[in-house]
Computed example of a mutant assay.
Amino acid sequence: MDTADSASTGTERSRGRKGKRAVRRTQTASMADVARLAGVSSQTVSRVSNGYAGVNEETREQVLAAMKELGYRPNSAARALKRGEFRTIGVITFNLSTTGNMRTLEAIATSAAQEGYAVTLLPVAVPTQDEVRGAFSRLGELAVDAVIAIMEVHLLDAATISLPPHVQVVVADSDAGDRYAVVDTDQAGGARAAVRHLLDLGHSTVWHLAGPEESFAAQRRTDAWHAALTEAGRVPPPLVRGDWSAESGYRAGLRLADERDCTAVFAANDQMALGLLRALHERGRKIPDDVSVIGFDDIPEAGSFLPPLTTVHQDFAEVGRLCVEGVLRRMRHGGPEHGTTLVPTKLVVRGSTAPPAGDA
């Protein structure tokens, strides 16, 4: 059959590379079309398409060029059905503005990409159980192999969350270890290190600017602060509550500036510590001469605060990596349905903490 006859049947052909006959670019190019244009077998096209090894570089480039010329896109749905997996991890979270959530999400996306997986994000607009149930349902419809939830335990009602049986779940930043596999920072250990640092400097007690009541991380840090002071024989001062924002830290700082016996403050995160520093400065309380301040998170800007902020470093990259590692391990080999993996914290001492006046 000549070229004219081929055209009349609806399949246009032209002379390809190295004399091979090939299909001109159409929107319905098939794997067989790519194989003909590249002069290779369909099996070789499949191996290149799926990123498998065992194809020499010249052949790989030849196949990729043919794909580009024809506008061929592999059928990911068909490949997923054949493999029994979609190579996609769903992530459910809310409050994308917080440092911890954003950095954990970034680490999850990076680690997933390194493993050849895509990430589908479903942000929860309002942190309620109904919204979370809806997000889990939508992820089930979007064909994911696993789910990572970055949220508090009170939003994870296991009785009402429904996913296909093959979908694995790992939770970050929660105390849901009795129901799910959890990866989290050692919140308590970091808070204890902060309090001990200030007591070791000679401060008689440590005030605490806490995060919101509904936050698991905030509660763990508050409990550890209280326990560390009690174990050291010190009386915990009244708790001051914030909402993670610098503005709430500023408001708390205006209050604490009037507490003349306040010489040391442990803020539950760096953003609140930033607002606290500003308020104390405006009220004439020098840092660290009059008041020592320590934060939690070690955000990238912490070393540029005035003075540079002593803080507890959280390894968000490791949390994200372990979340991905956990769901992939459970997908491939099985594993425990619940339990908690803690990532250690590290105290980073900078210029915002010092012995109380008269003790230096």
Rank of each mutant, 00 (worst) to 15 (best):
E318V: 12
T9A: 10
F216V: 10
F86A: 13
D186L: 05
A264I: 01
N95M: 13
R47L: 13
A29K: 04
D157G: 04
P236D: 04
P355G: 10
L347P: 00
L342S: 09
I299Y: 04
A279E: 05
V291L: 06
V291N: 06
H281E: 15
R24H: 12
A210V: 08
G16Y: 05
S30F: 08
R36Q: 15
A66M: 09
E325N: 09
P212A: 09
T99Y: 15
R332G: 07
R196K: 14
Q27C: 13
I108S: 00
D173I: 02
H281C: 02
P123C: 09
S304V: 09
L322D: 09
G189N: 10
A38D: 02
S248E: 04
T26Y: 07
Q187T: 08
A172E: 04
S76G: 09
T59E: 11
M67A: 08
A35K: 01
A246I: 05
M272S: 01
G275P: 00
S352C: 06
A194F: 03
H166F: 14
L81P: 04
P356M: 10
G71M: 08
G39S: 06
S204W: 10
G233L: 11
R278L: 11
A227W: 05
D5P: 01
H154G: 02
H338V: 01
G71N: 05
D157I: 00
Q43M: 12
